[in-house]
Nucleic acid binder design. Structure first.
Length: 431
DNA sequence: TCTGGGGTCCTAGGACCC
DNA sequence: TCTGGGGTCCTAGGACCC
C-alpha cells in the first residue's frame, strides 16, 4: 500500500505560516516577474482564478475583492518543504519525494489502522510546521493520487465526495462497488497522467469518468493510445506499474530559462542573460556531480503577441565533458552569437546542459591534467563562497557583458503586494 | 503594458548497417 | 529494369507532470 501526501496550496500556505493574517483571504503567489498565478488559496480559487492565469488578467480582483498577490519566494518554500518531508517520512519505511509539495510513502509492513496513522502525521505537520495537507492511500501510485484528489475535494467542495473521506482517503480498504462509485464521480481528466489532449480524445471515445477508464478494454487503449495510457488503466485496476523511487536518478539535462521582464533586443543584453543562466545551470550541474557534453541555448519572441516571430536554438558540443562555469558560459555565449539576429523583441531565453555524465567516470582520465584539477578546486571554492555569502557574490564574466543593473530581469516594481502586514497586530492593511 | 520554469517519457521517421 | 528484411541509433516533437 502507498500513501501520497501533499501540502494544500503549498506556496500560499507557506507564506501564510509567516503571515498568519493572510489566512482565509484570497491570496495568490505569482511566478517569476509576477507573470502568472502559480498557487492560490481556497478563497482565491473561489474567485474563479485559474492556475496559470496571467496576473494582468486577474489583477483587477485586488481592488474589487481584496485579492492579495505575492511574488514567489522559492528558498522559503524549499525550506518548508524539507521540514514537511521529514515528518511525512514518518508514515512508512520508504519515501519518494516527488515534487516540492508532495511525496509517496510506502506503507508496507505498517500494522494497524492506516487512516488513523495518516491523520496523526497530518495533524503533526499542521501543528509543527503550519502546513495543512491531505493524504491519499491506495495500492498503486495512480490510485493513491486519486485518493488524494478525493481527500482534497471532499474537504474543499463539500458534496463532491462523501465527507468522511476529507483530508485522508483510503481507497485500498473499501468494497469494489464503493470504489467504482467514487471513480464514477471523478472526471477522467482528474486521473494522474490524463492531460487536456488525451482527455478530449477519451471524451470522444465516450470515456468520461475514472470509472470508464478503469473498466476500458486494455488492448484497445494500448492500440490507440500506447503504453503510457495502458499503464494508467492497469494502475487504476490496482496493478502496480510504477514503482516507488527512493533515490531518483541524476538529471539527464539541466536547464535555466527565464521570461524577460521587458523585451530584449540587443546582443549584449542577451549575452548577459545567457551568462547568468549558464552560471546557475553550472551550479546545479556540480551539485549533482555531473559533467556536460553539450550546451544548448535558445531565444524566442513572445508567442502571445503579434509582430515578427523569432525562435532559434543552438547546440554547442564541448571538446570534453566539463562542469567549469567558464567553459559552459563560453559555449553558451558562442552559441547565442551564432543564432542572434537584431530586430526582434525577445521575450524569453535559456540555457540547457545536455548529454550529462557522472563526473567520477572522467576523474581518472583527467587526473593527469593539472588544469582540470585547478578547475575543480576553483569551482568548488566559487560554490562555497556563493553558498556562504549569497548567490552572485563571485561570478564569471563573459565578453560583451558588464556588471550594470540587469534590465532583462525585472519588469519593474510590481513586486509590492497590494497589502502589507502590520507586524504588531498581524492585521492586513492596505498599502 | 502585462502570459512560469524545469523536468520526463514515448513515438515516429530517417539514417545506417548487415 | 529488377531492388528484402530486420535491427539499432538518433532526433524532433508531442504529451504529460508539478
Amino acid at each position: 500500500m502507498l500513501a501520497l501526501l501533499d501540502g494544500n496550496n503549498f506556496y500560499v500556505s507557506s507564506e501564510t505560516v509567516f503571515r498568519p493574517a493572510l489566512a482565509g483571504l484570497p491570496v495568490v503567489v505569482l511566478s517569476n516577474n509576477d507573470g502568472c498565478v502559480i498557487s492560490r488559496s481556497d478563497a482565491a480559487r473561489a474567485l474563479g482564478i485559474k492556475m496559470g492565469a496571467p496576473w494582468f488578467k486577474v489583477s483587477h480582483l485586488a481592488d474589487s475583492d481584496g485579492l492579495v498577490a505575492l511574488s514567489a519566494n522559492f528558498p522559503l518554500y524549499g525550506d518548508i518543504s524539507d521540514r514537511m518531508m521529514s515528518l511525512a517520512a514518518g508514515l512508512g519505511p520508504a519515501q519518494e519525494i516527488y515534487s516540492i509539495d508532495e511525496c509517496f510513502v510506502s506503507l508496507d509492513g505498517i500494522p494497524g489502522d492506516l487512516v488513523d496513522r495518516a491523520r496523526r502525521v497530518r495533524a503533526r505537520i499542521l501543528k509543527w510546521i503550519g502546513i495543512p495537507c491531505c493524504v491519499g492511500i491506495g495500492p498503486t501510485k495512480t490510485l493513491a493520487k486519486l485518493a488524494n484528489h478525493i481527500a482534497k475535494n471532499a474537504e474543499r467542495k463539500p458534496g463532491s465526495y462523501p465527507a468522511h473521506l476529507a483530508q485522508v482517503c483510503h481507497l485500498g480498504a473499501m468494497p469494489q462497488a464503493e470504489l467504482l462509485d467514487l471513480m464514477a464521480s471523478t472526471a477522467v481528466g482528474e486521473v494522474w497522467g490524463i492531460g487536456r489532449r488525451i482527455e478530449a480524445q477519451l471524451q470522444e471515445a465516450n470515456i468520461r469518468t475514472a470509472r470508464d477508464l478503469a473498466t476500458a478494454d486494455v488492448p484497445t487503449i494500448r492500440q490507440r493510445w500506447g503504453v503510457v495510457l495502458e499503464r494508467t488503466v492497469r494502475e487504476l485496476q490496482g496493478v502496480a506499474c510504477l514503482q516507488l523511487d527512493e533515490q531518483p536518478a541524476p538529471k539527464k539535462e539541466i536547464a535555466c530559462t527565464r521570461s524577460f521582464g521587458h523585451p530584449v533586443t540587443t546582443l549584449p543584453e542577451l549575452l548577459e542573460a545567457i551568462t547568468e543562466f549558464a552560471t546557475r545551470a553550472a551550479v546545479k550541474l556540480r551539485d549533482q556531480q555531473s559533467l556536460a557534453n553539450q550546451v544548448m541555448v535558445f531565444a524566442h519572441t513572445s508567442p502571445f503577441r503579434s509582430g515578427p516571430r523569432f525562435s532559434r536554438s543552438c547546440v554547442t558540443p564541448l571538446s570534453r565533458p566539463t562542469a567549469d562555469t567558464r567553459r559552459l558560459v563560453a559555449a553558451g555565449v558562442a552559441g547565442m552569437r551564432k543564432i542572434y539576429e537584431s530586430g526582434y523583441l525577445l521575450s524569453k531565453a535559456g540555457v540547457m546542459l545536455l548529454d550529462l555524465q557522472d563526473d567520477k567516470i572522467e576523474q581518472g582520465a583527467l587526473a593527469l591534467e593539472p588544469e582540470s584539477k585547478d578547475q575543480t578546486v576553483l569551482m568548488g571554492t566559487l560554490d562555497e563562497v556563493n553558498r556562504r555569502y549569497g548567490r552572485g557574490t563571485v561570478t564569471v564574466g563573459s565578453a560583451g557583458t558588464s556588471n550594470k543593473p540587469r534590465g532583462w530581469e525585472m519588469k519593474q516594481a510590481r513586486r509590492t503586494p497590494a497589502y502589507t502586514t502590520d507586524w504588531n497586530d498581524l492585521a492586513i492593511t492596505r498599502a
